[in-house]
Nucleic acid binder design. Structure first.
Length: 477
RNA sequence: GGGUCGCUAGCUCAGUGGUAGAGCAUUCGGCUUUUAACCGACUGGUCCUGGGUUCGAAUCCCAGGCGACCCA
C-alpha cells in the first residue's frame, strides 16, 4: 500500500497499538464511542460556578470526611486518574489550581442513569489524562483529607488525542518546553505564575508611566535603516517599494524623533529583533522598554528607574525584596552608583584613568587576567573588556554603573566635567545588564561624527555596526 | 565560531562488542478512600543519519545532523 510519509503524519503501523499513533487511534475511537453514548466529545459550553482556587480557599477549613451540600460546577483538564471498581478519583486542573473529583458509581448512575445507563463505565473507559472535563456536584473532603467535588454529573468538554508527558518526571527537555509552550504550561504550573507576573509587571509599568505623564507610542518595526544599537538585523523585503527593509533592533531613534516632534515624555514597550546567537538567555525577538524625557539628564533617568522598579516590585510581589534563583535582591532605594573606572579599579586594582598609552593599558589589563584585549582599539575598549570580564558578574544587587568611555557610547552626551567620558549609566542586577540610559546626545554635528565612525566600521566588515541614519540627523537639526 | 556532554519505546532513563531493557503512559482483567494508587497480563524500537572496523556494533572509529551547557 502506497503512503505519503511526512514527519507530522507517520504512516500507520499495523503492529503498533501502543506507540503514539496507537494511542491517537484509540482516543479517536473513544471520541466516537462517546458520540454513540450520546455525549459530545467537543462540547460547545459548560457553565462554571467557581474557579478551583476559590473552592480550595472557601473550604480550606472543612474537616476530613466531612461533606457540604453545596452545589458547584467546575471545568478543567484531567491530570491524573485513579480508578477502582466502583469508585474513581480524578485530579483536575483549571487555570487557578487543582481539585480532586470523587466519582462514585452509585451517585453518578442515580443522577445520569436515565440519559446513559453506562455513565460510570463510560467515565472509566472513555476518559484519559489530558481530557478537559466538566463536573457538577457537591463538596466533600475525603477521609484522606483531599478536598473533592463529589460528582453528580460530568460531561466531556474536549477529548484529547495525545498523551501528556510522564506524570512524575514531567517535561524536562528545555527545547521542547520552549517549542511546545502549551505542554509546558499544562504540566508545569509555576510557568503560569511567571506569565501572570509578567502581565502584572507590564500593566504596572504602563500605569506608573501614565501617572508620570508619559504617553505610549508604537514606532515602525520595519525600517529602511536599523539603528539605536549594535546588532545584526533581520532583513526582509517590501514588494511594492521594491526594497529591502530591516526589522528594528531598537526603538531608540524613532522615539527620539517623537521628542523632536514635541512630545516631552514618551515610551514604547515592544519587540525588537536581533539576528544573532540563540540560547535560553538570548531570544532573537525580545521585549524592551525605552523611555525618553526632554530636559532631563541621566541622573533624572536613574532616579526614575529605581523608583519605578521598586514600586513595581511592591505592586507585583507585595515586597521590595525578591528572591531570584537563590539570590535575595533588594530594590530598596537608593541603589548603589559607581563609575565604570571605580568599579574596575576596585576589582582589578587598575586605574585606567591614569593611562594615556593604549599599549600600557593593554599590558596592565593582561596582568590582571583580562583576556581578548589585543584587538581593542582604544583605552575605553580595554576598560570595557576589564569591566565585562571582572566586574559584571559580581554585581548582584541593583547597581548603576556610570560615566562610560565615549568610544563605546555613540548616542550619549559628553560628560559635563570629565573629558573622554559620556553621561551614561547601565543598570546591573544578578550579574546581568538590565538597563542602559544617557543624557541623550542632541548636538547634530557631534551625532553625525559618531555615526560616521560607526558607518566606517560597517564598511570595514563589522556586521553589528550601523549606517548613518540621515533622517534622524535631519530631525536633530 | 570554539569546547564539553548528550541523542535508545509516547515520557523519564538503564544498557562499554554477543538474543533490545526498566518505571510510568497505552491496551486487557481485578478492586469503593486513592493522590507517582495497587495487583496480574499484554503491547510498544529506523538504538539520530551515513560510512568504516569486526564472525558479530546501541556499544569502537570517521563524517554529518539535532540539542543542552560553558566560552566568544
Amino acid at each position: 500500500m502506497a503512503s505519503n510519509k511526512s514527519p507530522n503524519t507517520p504512516a500507520p503501523n499495523d503492529s503498533s497499538d501502543s506507540g503514539i499513533e496507537g494511542i491517537r487511534a484509540a482516543r479517536l475511537q473513544k471520541a466516537e464511542d462517546l458520540k454513540q453514548a450520546g455525549q459530545q466529545p467537543y462540547a460547545y459550553s459548560w457553565d462554571i460556578t467557581h474557579p478551583i482556587a476559590d473552592l480550595q480557599a472557601k473550604f480550606a477549613d472543612l474537616e476530613a470526611g466531612a461533606e457540604e451540600d453545596f452545589n458547584v460546577s467546575i471545568a478543567g483538564r484531567i491530570m491524573a486518574r485513579r480508578v477502582f471498581g466502583k469508585l474513581a478519583f480524578f485530579t483536575v486542573q483549571d487555570e487557578t489550581g487543582t481539585i480532586q473529583l470523587y466519582l462514585e458509581k452509585k451517585t453518578i448512575q442515580a443522577e445520569m442513569g436515565e440519559a446513559d445507563a453506562q455513565a460510570f463505565n463510560h467515565l472509566k473507559q472513555l476518559t484519559d489524562a489530558g481530557d478537559i472535563i466538566g463536573a457538577q456536584g457537591t463538596i466533600k473532603r475525603t477521609d484522606k483529607g483531599e478536598l473533592s467535588v463529589k460528582v453528580k454529573q460530568y460531561a466531556m468538554l474536549t477529548k484529547s488525542l495525545l498523551p501528556l508527558p510522564d506524570k512524575f518526571h514531567g517535561l524536562t527537555d528545555v527545547a521542547k518546553r520552549y517549542r511546545q509552550r502549551y505542554v509546558d504550561l499544562i504540566v508545569n504550573p509555576e510557568v503560569r505564575d511567571t506569565f501572570r507576573k509578567r502581565a502584572k509587571i507590564t500593566a504596572a509599568i504602563r500605569r506608573h508611566l501614565d501617572e508620570l505623564g508619559y504617553i505610549e507610542v508604537e514606532t515602525p518595526v520595519l525600517q529602511s535603516e536599523p539603528g539605536g544599537a549594535e546588532a545584526r538585523p533581520f532583513v526582509t523585503y517590501h514588494n511594492t517599494l521594491d526594497m529591502e527593509l530591516y526589522l528594528r533592533i531598537a526603538t531608540e531613534l524613532h522615539l527620539k524623533r517623537m521628542v523632536v516632534g514635541g512630545f516631552e515624555k514618551v515610551f514604547e514597550l515592544g519587540r525588537v529583533f536581533r539576528n544573532e546567537g540563540i540560547s535560553t538567555r538570548h531570544n532573537p525577538e525580545f521585549t524592551t522598554i525605552e523611555m525618553y524625557q526632554a530636559y532631563s539628564d541621566y541622573q533624572d533617568m536613574m532616579a526614575l528607574t529605581e523608583s519605578m522598579i521598586e514600586q513595581i516590585a511592591e505592586e507585583v510581589t507585595g515586597s521590595n525584596t525578591v528572591t531570584y534563583q537563590g539570590e535575595e535582591i533588594s530594590f530598596a532605594q537608593p541603589w548603589k552608583r559607581v563609575t565604570m573606572h571605580d568599579a574596575v579599579k576596585e576589582k582589578t586594582g587598575i586605574d585606567f584613568g591614569e593611562f594615556s598609552d593604549l599599549a600600557a593599558a593593554k599590558e596592565a589589563a593582561k596582568g590582571a587576567g583580562v583576556g581578548d584585549v589585543d584587538s581593542c582599539e582604544s583605552i575605553g575598549h580595554v576598560l570595557n573588556e576589564a569591566f565585562e570580564q571582572k566586574v559584571e558578574e559580581t554585581l548582584i544587587q541593583p547597581t548603576f554603573i556610570t560615566d562610560y568611555p565615549v568610544e563605546i557610547s555613540p548616542l550619549s552626551k559628553p560628560h559635563r566635567s570629565k573629558p573622554g567620558l559620556v553621561e551614561r549609566f547601565e543598570l546591573f542586577m544578578v550579574g546581568r545588564e538590565t538597563a542602559n540610559g544617557f543624557s541623550e546626545l542632541t548636538d547634530p554635528v557631534d551625532q553625525r561624527d559618531r555615526l560616521e565612525l560607526q558607518a566606517a566600521k560597517k564598511e570595514a566588515g563589522d556586521l553589528e555596526a550601523c549606517s548613518v541614519d540621515e533622517d534622524f540627523i535631519n530631525a536633530l537639526e
